[in-house]
Design a protein around this nucleic acid. Structure first.
Lengths: 153, 153
DNA sequence: CTGATAGTTGAAGTCAACTTCAAGTCAAGG
DNA sequence: CCTTGACTTGAAGTTGACTTCAACTATCAG
């Protein structure tokens, strides 16, 4: 193990749980920065771990990487972000989660009535049309990330 | 308007809310079937609408199309599915939704403590590691479908 | 100094669930 | 009969978040 306070990709990957390829990807997207050795290898500062924790948390809440990038861009440059900085960024998540929970609860309660009757009629059944607002558009949107859906659910 | 009891793609699309391209896609995936006119155009039976309602509901609950296809494959051949048939298929959704709601609630409650402290420490913070089980793997999994995230949340 | 281990790059691939396109064919009201 | 709008096909494109690949190169314990 080296003795500097800088971390290699492998170390950051191990400590953060992100794959090295993901770290490089995040760098390309402007979410992370890294110093380079003379040989061109990445060397991360320790605080990148907190940044990555934020990224993972935000992703768990449902933010896209673009949204995460936008949030991170509001952090002060020059100084290391304080706890208050991080706290500020995550303050809006609460209502977001509340909304998601409400939507799912509505779906579940609608399901309770549907299971009994097997109705599933278009436009009226709350399972196929909860709140008349759910009409999944566009490609590639899953309801929950696979781990939440499969393992911890 | 024609006078038969068979529906064209356009009609099914309009009544179900799915785009014609989605209907054709579902057919290729084995989720739907359609008769053909002499000229090769699709003609759907009316009960395809219930099938589509089921598909939309299942998608809202978070099932993949593969899972939906598997569920639909358990329907009896030969006879039109009864309400009990549909009811059976959707019975398992309740616990699925319960699990999703529980996961989100845990995330939110973890957030409450995190907002105060701005901790977000890796491995311990429940926001970045709810239940030590959330480590999003693989590509392309969003938390909620865009409509739920953006409009009704 | 050397060899194993870990790191580098850009380009291309993956996955789900569709959509879009081009180039044509069908159906039916007037 | 004809025109117009709806329908057909297979192939390729889209989106987000990464992963995989090939072909090197750097680092460091011994």
């Amino acid at each position: 193990m080296r003795t500097t306070d800088l971390l290699t990709v492998g170390e950051v990957a191990h400590r953060s749980g992100f794959a090295p390829s993901a770290l490089r990807f995040y760098e390309r997207q402007g979410l992370l920065q890294a110093a380079r050795t003379a040989g061109g290898q990445r060397r991360y500062q320790r605080n990148v771990l907190r940044r990555l924790a934020f990224i993972r948390a935000a992703r768990n809440v449902g933010l896209t990487l673009d949204e995460v990038a936008a949030a991170l861009a509001t952090l002060p440059e020059g100084r290391t972000p304080t706890k208050e900085d991080w706290s500020r960024l995550s303050r809006g998540w609460r209502s977001r989660l509340d909304g998601q929970i409400a939507a799912l609860t509505k779906l579940r309660d609608g399901l309770d009535s549907c299971i009994g009757c097997g109705c599933l009629s278009l436009r009226t059944c709350s399972m196929s049309n909860p709140d008349d607002a759910v009409a999944v558009r566009g490609p590639g949107a899953a309801f929950l990330p696979a781990p939440l859906r499969t393992e911890s659910a």
